[in-house]
Nucleic acid binder design. Structure first.
Lengths: 363, 363
DNA sequence: CTGAAAGCGCTTACAG
DNA sequence: CTGAAAGCGCTTACAG
């Protein structure tokens, strides 16, 4: 592979001049520039990013450590992160922790060894030692979705409190009184927060959240299945199961189905994190949707601000309830046009008539 | 951040000795080793991978360029690739092309600039110029899932021919005679191959595949929706729609539903690529399942063989049909045990009694 | 505007 | 077994 020396020789200039041309340094004669460009062309030269990084001490690379790539929520997050990073001239290396702190640790260390310019983390259960060390050592870092209390790092996340309140109001309105939740790991903020929001919303309706109605999950499908089985074995099973993420909802659905029960007739189901498939499950699933793409983009902007010396900003965006049929609501009345209506973009701001936070699904 | 010089000073040895200790070079005295390890500990020293890469001309990093991360098939592929790579001591950088050759090109160039040791590619439509150049230039490369004809690169993929034949037999047995397919981009191998396999399988039953029954898709949901609408507008619409990937099946489902039609009563649906959600869609969807994890692992092994100087092997693994209810089959008879049966691992080899290639879904 | 030279943090023949 | 030194491919003050 051609190096900068080869280009210099080919163009009849020094490597310094080649470097200046490549980096758009102003003091280069037009003639030198032309010859260098031509040499670059002829040789198909591409600068060695490894050498450049060693010299400049920056890699223009961001690390993204997420808890589970197989979760569609994180996949979408990863995608928007990469897109925004690319538009700002950064690459991103994704590390998938699979909800396991040791693997999170492995990725954080590897990423740091590669001298990435900054780290975006959605910490697993409690966070791994290496990740905590990095934060303390002052590595440019931003938490997305989940965060660790007491660690001084900007956080970009969705606030589901209002949406959970809307969900509980919806459930209560449908006559449900025994509501259960499948929580994520208590040590993750999204694990505990969603339970707390749920508990508070219940309290507002005079309902309690007994311990037996709190299933302990780990954000994976299998744990949703087990928690649901336990609920169904109760002397007084809940009327509703609210899964704190979409994979545990999948597991819950498996469990309900394995018992030969029906949703929502025998038991209602709702989930945190909306995904395209929820429109087509049997029945369509009521879910709380996060502004995932915007979260990813805001996180990258905060991190790049931090890296480039601007003050980074924590961001909290609202999640919203999307009502479907899995909680017992009759299907929304709809006409069936022969031609589907043209795509209608969501209006940027709700008009007064649309202020209800409860948004009805299009489907 | 501490460098090797700091460690050397702290341990009272030369940087050469530190390097030898770090790389497990045999000729180091026990005493020197001990002092170096202690210094490393005290300083929290981690070798700079960028510097090491520049010096050794290897990054122990693999690039993976996939056509669409949001597609669960590719997400799973990416995950297994990363796992296998990690176990072999490599990191992987994922580039998401979003089915667009320009973006594929961007990622290939960026990855090459970073001097990754090898490239795993699932080429978009026809492949991008940069990717083709890299292949010709002798960059260690392996194609996964899709490949480009005439490019001398090992291919790791699933063969769906048998499964498609099983699918058509299944459909024919259910009485369907007008079968349509939503194809992927003709320039992708998976796009054209699946159509050809389908056509051949139909021919074996004396059925034709008229042009009007070939929808042109791009592996994205929206294209599945449009193709399905076109089918439904036909004077004689098909009885079955077979989508060449899971996202187009989602779109097809959207379209069918928007017309107020039912699956499978009004139209049957099947998909290439099985995903966990297909168990819970309304109705559960009959699909062709690829051995995705094994594909990812085999691809990494082939690439690492190539990188480390061993002869890489192309691998073709069979896909298999998973029958559910979306094509009109009555739900399989099942008892509903109060306790779910214990997890049963799939036997490694089919016994004679199980040789039927058609596998019935567990659900 | 240009080039010679130093140096980023490592590894590795080479000499001892 | 150990260290001094060269060199990987760049960038960038410094001198001219």
């Amino acid at each position: 592979m051609a190096s900068i020396k080869d280009v210099a020789a080919e163009a009849g200039v020094s490597v310094a001049t080649v470097s200046r041309v490549l980096n758009d340094h102003p003091s280069v004669s037009p003639d030198a520039r032309t010859r260098v460009m031509a040499a670059v062309q002829r040789l198909g030269y591409r600068p060695n990013a490894v050498a450049r990084s060693l010299r400049t001490d920056q890699t223009r690379t961001l690390g993204l450590v997420i808890s589970d790539v197989l979760n569609p929520y994180f996949t979408e997050l990863a995608r928007s992160v990469e897109e925004e990073a690319r538009s700002l001239g950064y690459s991103v290396i994704i590390g998938n922790a699979d909800e396991r702190p040791e693997i999170e640790d492995h990725h954080v260390r590897t990423l740091l060894d590669r001298r990435i310019d900054g780290l975006l983390v959605s910490p697993t259960d409690g966070g791994s030692p290496g990740m905590l060390d990095a934060a303390r050592a002052g590595t440019p870092m931003v938490f997305v979705d989940r965060w660790i209390a007491g660690v001084d790092v900007p956080v970009v996340r969705a606030d589901g409190r209002t949406a959970v309140r809307d969900l509980v109001a919806h459930l209560h309105g449908l006559g449900h009184r025994r509501l259960a939740i499948i929580a994520g790991p208590a040590a993750t903020t999204t694990g505990s927060e969603r339970v707390e929001a749920f508990r508070e919303a219940l309290a507002a309706h005079g309902l309690a959240l007994p311990d037996a109605y709190i299933g302990q999950g780990d954000f994976q499908a299998e744990s949703g299945r087990r928690a649901t089985e336990r609920f169904l074995d109760l002397a007084e099973p809940p009327e509703v199961v609210f899964a704190a993420d979409n994979l545990m909802a999948l597991g819950a659905l498996d469990a309900v189905r394995a018992r030969g029960l029906r949703v929502p007739e025998d038991i209602a189901l709702a989930a945190f994190d909306d995904i395209p498939w929820f429109v087509h499950t049997d029945p369509p699933i009521t879910a709380i949707a996060q502004p995932t793409g915007e979260l990813g983009r805001a996180a990258v902007r905060a991190l790049v601000d931090r890296i480039e010396g601007r003050p980074p900003q924590s961001v909290t965006l609202p999640a919203r309830l999307v009502v479907r049929r899995s909680c017992g609501e009759p299907p929304p009345v709809r006409t069936t046009p022969v031609q589907p209506p043209p795509e209608q973009p969501t209006p940027p701001e709700p008009t007064p008539a649309q202020q209800s936070p409860v948004q009805r699904s299009q489907s």
